[in-house]
Computed example of a mutant assay.
Amino acid sequence: MEGTRRTTLVLLLLACLLFLSLLATANSQLRTDFYKDTCPNVESLVRSAVANKFQQTFATASGTLRLFFHDCFVRGCDASVLLFSPSGKAEKDHPDDLSLAGDAFDTVIKAKAAVDSDPNCRNKVSCADILALATRDVVALSGGPSYAVELGRRDGRISTIAGVQHSLPHPDFSLDKLNTMFTSHGLTQTDMVALSGAHTIGFSHCKAFSKRIYNFSPENPIDPTLDRSYAFQLRTMCPINVDPNIAVGMDPTSPRTFDNAYFKNLRQSKGLFISDQILFNDARSRATVDLFASNNAAFNEAFVAAITKLGRVGVKTGNEGEIRRNCAAIN
Rank of each mutant, 00 (worst) to 15 (best):
Asp106Phe: 12
Ala113Lys: 09
Ser126Thr: 14
Thr107Gln: 08
Ala134Cys: 08
Ala128Arg: 11
Thr135Gln: 00
Gly144Arg: 04
Lys112Ala: 11
Ala134Val: 01
Phe105Met: 07
Ile130Gly: 09
Asp137His: 02
Asn120Met: 10
Ala111Trp: 01
Asp129Met: 06
Ala140Gln: 11
Pro145Ile: 04
Ala134Lys: 01
Gly144Pro: 05
Ala111His: 02
Val125Gly: 11
Asn123Met: 09
Ala134Asp: 06
Ser117Glu: 10
Asp137Lys: 02
Thr107Lys: 06
Phe105Tyr: 15
Pro119Asp: 10
Cys127Tyr: 10
Leu131His: 08
Asn120Ile: 06
Cys127Val: 12
Ser142Trp: 09
Ala140Met: 06
Ala132Cys: 07
Val125His: 09
Ala111Cys: 03
Asp118Met: 07
Asn120Val: 10
Ala132Ser: 15
Gly144Phe: 06
Ile109Cys: 03
Phe105Lys: 09
Gly143Ala: 06
Gly144Met: 07
Ala134Gln: 05
Cys127Glu: 15
Val125Asp: 10
Leu141Cys: 01
Asp118Val: 10
Arg122Asp: 05
Val139Gly: 00
Val138Phe: 01
Asn123Ser: 12
Val125Tyr: 07
Gly143Val: 04
Cys127Thr: 15
Leu131Cys: 12
Ala114Met: 02
Asn123Lys: 14
Ser117Cys: 02
Ser126Val: 13
Lys110Tyr: 11
Leu133Asp: 08
Asp137Ala: 00
Lys124Gln: 14
Ala134Leu: 04
Gly143Gln: 05
Val115Phe: 01
Ser117Thr: 01
Cys127Phe: 09
Val108Tyr: 09
Ser126Ile: 12
Ala128Cys: 12
Asp116Leu: 04
Asp137Val: 02
Ala140Glu: 13
Leu141Gly: 00
Leu133Gln: 05
Ser117Tyr: 04
Ala132Met: 03
Ser142His: 06
Phe105Asp: 04
Leu133Thr: 03
Leu133Tyr: 04
Ala128Pro: 11
Thr135Leu: 01
Lys124Gly: 07
Ala128Asp: 13
Arg122Lys: 15
Val125Asn: 11
Ala113Pro: 03
Val138Cys: 03
Pro119Tyr: 11
Ala113Ser: 11
Val125Ser: 11
Ala132Trp: 00
Pro145Arg: 06
Val139Ser: 02
Pro119Ser: 12
Ser117His: 13
Asp118His: 11
Ile109Gly: 05
Val108Trp: 07
Ala113His: 04
Asp106His: 10
Val108Asp: 11
Ile109Phe: 14
Thr107Trp: 07
Thr107His: 05
Ala111Ile: 00
Asp106Ser: 13
Cys121Asp: 02
Thr135Gly: 08
Asn120Ala: 15
Asp106Leu: 15
Asp118Gln: 13
Ala134Gly: 07
Leu141Ile: 00
Ile130Cys: 09
Val139Asp: 00
Lys110Leu: 12
Cys121Ile: 03
Lys112Cys: 03
Ala128Thr: 13
Arg136Pro: 02
Lys124Leu: 06
Val138His: 01
Leu133Arg: 04
Ala140Ser: 12
Ala111Ser: 14
Leu133Phe: 06
Val125Ile: 10
Arg136Tyr: 00
Leu131Pro: 11
Arg122Val: 12
Ala114Gln: 05
Val108Gln: 08
Val115Gly: 03
Ala140Arg: 13
Ser126Cys: 14
Cys127Gly: 15
Ser142Thr: 12
Asn120Lys: 15
Leu141Thr: 00
Pro119Leu: 09
Leu141Arg: 01
Ile130Arg: 05
